[in-house]
């Protein structure tokens, strides 16, 4: 069975944390949850609670990432499970989305990208980010 936790961090990140196995049986739940979170400006998907993912799960993950990006958001995936990290590498998944080991690293990556985007788009260069 799959449970999906959703959190908001004080920094304004939406964290999606599925817990359980992700396959054809459970995937629709995951897909729906991601669709609901797709409008988040910064979405973190933490796969550390998922011991098994198959291509249905990967497909849902990609669909969710794509939708969030289409709506102008940025997405990162964190996962500390070697089996899943290896699958993400084998399938080339890690080349289309940032994959980090911890949520903290994922936040840092998204922060950095947001700063870079701001610098690139701002002629004044007046970033007000305190971090």
């Amino acid at each position: 069975m799959l449970t999906i936790h959703q959190d908001q961090t004080p920094e304004g990140y939406t964290v999606c944390r599925p817990v359980g196995e992700l396959d054809a049986f459970t995937v629709s739940q995951f897909r729906q949850a991601l669709a609901e979170m797709a409008s988040s400006k910064r979405l973190l998907i933490d796969m550390s609670g998922v011991p098994f993912v198959d291509s249905a799960g990967l497909g849902a993950l990609i669909g969710g990432i794509r939708r969030a990006r289409e709506l102008g958001g940025d997405v990162a995936v964190s996962c500390n499970r070697p089996t899943l990290v290896r699958l993400l590498r084998t399938t080339g998944f890690d080349r289309i989305v940032t994959v980090t080991e911890t949520i903290e690293e994922a936040i840092a990556t998204l922060d950095q990208r947001a700063d870079e985007a701001e610098e690139a788009s701002s002629e004044h260069g007046s970033s007000e980010h305190g971090s």
Binding site: S55, G57, I62, R67, T91
Partner: peptide, 15 residues
């Protein structure tokens, strides 16, 4: 295209 996981299964098996 969001359903493309179906197409991913067989290449994945072969891999």
């Amino acid at each position: 295209r969001l359903d493309f996981e179906r197409g991913l299964g067989i290449p994945l098996i072969r891999t």
